[in-house]
Nucleic acid binder design. Structure first.
Lengths: 226, 226
DNA sequence: ACCTGAACACCGTTCAAGT
DNA sequence: ACCTGAACACCGTTCAAGT
């Protein structure tokens, strides 16, 4: 939401919900969920820890608002008037990149079911699936499949980023580490995972993500005639 | 993992990694992530809080092990020798129901990327997609799409359950509350969400989940000839 | 109306000391 | 080898008191 309708505008230094949320995003980006503390926030805002509670209900409210601010800004960037298939890819990629910049969003999305950030994504995807021309009863299934796929990728990517940061690894080293662990698994019990380990280091997250979207869109199309 | 290879078996009352993990699962089931505390755990195990650290590295290790114990048991129940399509549905439904009983798993899965619980699910799904007869280069895309879809549903379901519990709502009341919020949204900005609100209270989570799996499997099939 | 900052009731984790 | 329990360094949140 992040609307600032103060009757008098004060200097940049005055406390407001917007300024709190923006600063919270900075802290979350810089050092993850563990980095967002009411004490750290208060220091950055040159105020007392308790003052923040005048503008924000609690930490859940704060993280939820921060998440929604990023999601809203991301979805607003999606190009209007594109063909449905392309628009879905654009929405997905926009979210994918936002997650990359703000990995804490992954966990935040899973903490506020049915609330604003999730609703925005659902609305964006649902509208485009509708534009795909699917019959009404297939609309919900298709939109829901796409939505949950996007959320699943979001969660995994966020987990990867957070883990890599916590262990001070760059992406390549992280993937190499995981590939190494997968390769060491029992050949009889984990044949697929061992095979997947081989293609892990070179794979392109974004390309794989888009391939998944195309696959689901193809599934929606395949269901149409039936 | 949860293997107990003590050289001497002691009474039920002795401390062991397995007993700690089982008790942790009880606490997590009973009162969510907030309910798992080293102090509460120590009391339930009639020991000191510090003793647990002899068997467990830290809280992440504990929750990860608890998650893996549940996931491993769930996947072990999947019927062997079923046709690929049915096997995928069985794996999915098994996880869906496990998530329903242990909603904390949703968040736990997103905290250990590439680790055991995730790998088990990937292996189970990947093997069945392979049995579907897809060409090698479509295998990864298909398995990855299914995996992320399942994880997305898992995360959302867990979020729903956790929210409902935190607010002391039964499922029906929770859905009614969300439907009410969606219906109150601006008609111009959220047409799809408002339409979705109407079908929300009656919808069947499990059926919708399976429909999504079928859709993705159909997408995998549609990609085969291309 | 808004802010201060001390205080409360917790956490996870460590570690000397025990057996 | 394994356990005890006090202690440390934090948290989110509250609330009397200020302006």
């Amino acid at each position: 939401m992040v609307t600032n309708t103060r009757r008098t505008q004060r200097g940049e230094s005055s406390l407001s919900r917007d300024r709190i949320i923006d600063t919270a995003i900075e802290l979350l980006d810089a050092s993850g969920e563990a980095g967002l503390t009411f004490r750290a926030l208060a220091e950055r805002l040159s105020t007392g820890a308790g003052a923040i509670y005048w503008h924000v209900a609690d930490k859940d409210d704060l993280v939820g608002a921060a998440c929604d601010a990023v999601v809203a800004a991301t979805l607003a960037e999606a190009p209007a008037g594109a063909p449905a298939g392309e628009a879905i890819r654009a929405i997905g990629l926009g979210l994918f990149d936002a997650l990359d910049r703000h990995p804490w969003i992954g966990a935040a999305l899973m903490r506020s079911p049915g609330k604003m950030p999730m609703v925005r994504i659902m609305e964006g995807i649902g509208r485009e699936v509708q534009a795909l021309g699917v019959p009404p009863d297939a609309l919900w299934t298709g939109a829901s499949a796409l939505l949950h796929y996007v959320l699943g990728v979001a969660g995994q990517n966020a987990a990867n980023a957070q883990y890599a940061r916590a262990h001070a690894l760059v992406r390549e080293d992280f993937l190499a580490e995981v590939a190494g662990q997968w390769s060491a698994l029992d050949a009889h019990a984990f044949p697929f995972t061992r095979a997947a380990a081989a293609r892990l280091p070179q794979h392109d997250d974004r390309a794989d993500f888009l391939a998944g979207i195309d696959l689901i869109v193809a599934g929606i199309g395949a269901a149409r005639p039936a």
